[in-house]
Write a protein that binds this DNA or RNA. Structure first.
Length: 411
RNA sequence: GGAGAGUUGGCCGAGCGGUUUAUGGCGCUAGUCUUGAAAACUAGUGGGAGCAAUCCCUCACAGGUUCGAAUCCUGUACUCUCCGCCA
């Protein structure tokens, strides 16, 4: 949600920013409705003052007369209020000035690369084949139980996932991140406040119809709203959380894409970072979180590139977003493994999360970024560190957590 | 899932149709006093509009009854207690 005052002062800017994201909004309609709302509000307010005075002096006749007038105006006021809010909530967060205007992911910019694509003296196997040989990934049986795009992770695969989790926590906790295991079911209201229901966003969510709950697509969705309706102390900020949770995605509209393997699945575990910072500090925090993500992949020794999303690929609430894309040898491509966004104060306005300042209160700025969305780093590790016989070497930084330095084929 | 009891300002807690403009206390903030602090005393302490006087909204949320609702009615959410089920 944007500040209505900002929209009144910069209508063209807001309109253009929405268009850059490929979203049509009706600023004119919003401003007209808001103006009429204020007019009706003034009338209603003075009628209420008269009514209160009449009630006080027990002037029953006058009271009845005013009541009739109010009964006409009040529904109109409620209608206008709802209209203003709906229009307001359908305006996406404008991107930051440094974000390139573009239509879709084909116009994203590659801003950095680390390492060189891995080369092999043999024909590398993909993660599906490796997963089977090592007996750590079982897609076939999962399909039998849950349908397509599910998998079992087994044996050393489980330990590898836990190792990534511990490695992330051991890096982040000393930096003050608060570890948290969040609920994975959230209310529709919460999801709406996060800005994921607008613009057809709810198509990608699993819903529990009977109980009107939604399965989170990322831990961000239950961590970012943790301070809903709260006013934090200025010196609590920056406040950083690192959460670990399953993430559920319907992947609607991705039929035929990435059907092989576990790159795109309906459920995966993810270690996620969420930061709450003071106004004006989100740019710095954005670079900080990206730096952490890069350090992880550098220490793992996985070649990657950093991609900066153009406006068309940003999504509704984000103002800027960077993805890290890891090299996947058998696809001969870089594929997304992390994503870090600033949503500025867009969500905190909807969530009513503020902090105290000397002069009053301000909305906090919220950022979220992936530490590890576990399936994908495992793919990257398996494929990049495989040997000719199918053995996979475990990156050095993870060995103290896995307790083994390689995974060998079972037969 | 069944039965019952609740939800009032940062917190505790009155109020049960019209002197409630939400009693009182605690906490917090400022002032007085003090060398400083404590104590005591005084004032302020939900949101919005306005330079201001002032006005409107606000007693979980949403409707309704009434000239008038924190107070009566209906629905929803949440909390607690007991029973059932259960990792």
């Amino acid at each position: 949600m944007l500040d209505i005052k900002y929209i009144q002062e910069n209508p063209e800017k807001v309109q253009e920013a929405a268009l850059a994201k490929g979203i049509t909004v009706s600023i004119g309609e919003l401003l007209d409705a808001e103006k009429e709302y204020r007019e009706v509000f003034t009338q209603v307010q003075s009628l209420r003052a008269e009514r209160n005075a009449a009630a006080k002096s027990r002037d029953i006749e006058k009271g009845k007369e005013i009541k009739g007038k109010l009964e006409e105006l009040e529904p109109r006021l409620a209608e206008l209020e709802e209209k203003v809010q709906t229009l307001l909530w359908n305006i996406p967060n404008p991107s930051k000035d440094d974000v390139k205007v573009g239509k879709d992911d084909s116009e994203n910019e590659i801003i950095r690369k680390f390492g060189e694509p891995t080369t092999f003296s043999f024909k590398p196997r993909d993660h599906v084949e490796l997963g089977q040989m090592l007996d750590i990934i079982d897609i076939e049986r999962a399909t039998k139980i849950s349908g397509s795009r599910f998998y079992y992770l087994k044996n050393e695969g489980v330990l590898l996932e836990q190792a990534l989790l511990r490695y992330a926590l051991d890096t982040l906790l000393p930096q003050g991140f608060i570890p948290i295991l969040p609920p994975v079911l959230i209310t529709e209201d919460t999801m709406k406040r996060l800005g994921y229901m607008e613009n057809g966003g709810d198509e990608d969510m699993f819903r529990i119809e009977k109980d009107k709950l939604i399965l989170v697509a990322t831990a961000e969705q239950s961590i970012a709203p943790i301070h809903k309706d709260e006013t934090l102390d200025e010196d609590e900020l920056p406040k950083r959380y690192v959460g670990y949770s399953p993430s559920f995605r319907r992947e609607a509209g991705s039929y035929g894409k990435d059907t092989r393997g576990i790159l795109r699945v309906h459920q995966f575990n993810k270690v996620e970072m969420v930061s709450f910072v003071k106004k004006g500090e989100d740019d710095k925090e954005h670079e900080f979180l990206l730096g952490i993500e890069e350090k992880f992949f550098q220490e793992l020794g996985i070649p990657y590139q950093v991609s900066k999303m153009c406006t068309g690929d940003l999504g509704f609430p984000a103002a800027r977003k960077y993805d890290i894309e890891a090299w996947i040898p058998t696809q001969e491509k870089y594929r997304e493994v992390t994503s870090v966004s600033t949503v500025t104060d867009f969500q905190s306005r909807r969530l009513n999360t503020k902090y105290k300042t000397k002069d009053g209160t301000e909305y906090v700025q919220i950022l979220n970024g992936t530490a590890f969305s576990i399936g994908r780093p495992i793919i990257a590790i398996l494929e990049n560190f495989q040997q000719e016989d199918g053995t996979v070497i475990i990156p050095e930084v993870l060995r103290q957590y896995t307790g083994f330095d390689k995974i060998s084929p079972k037969k």
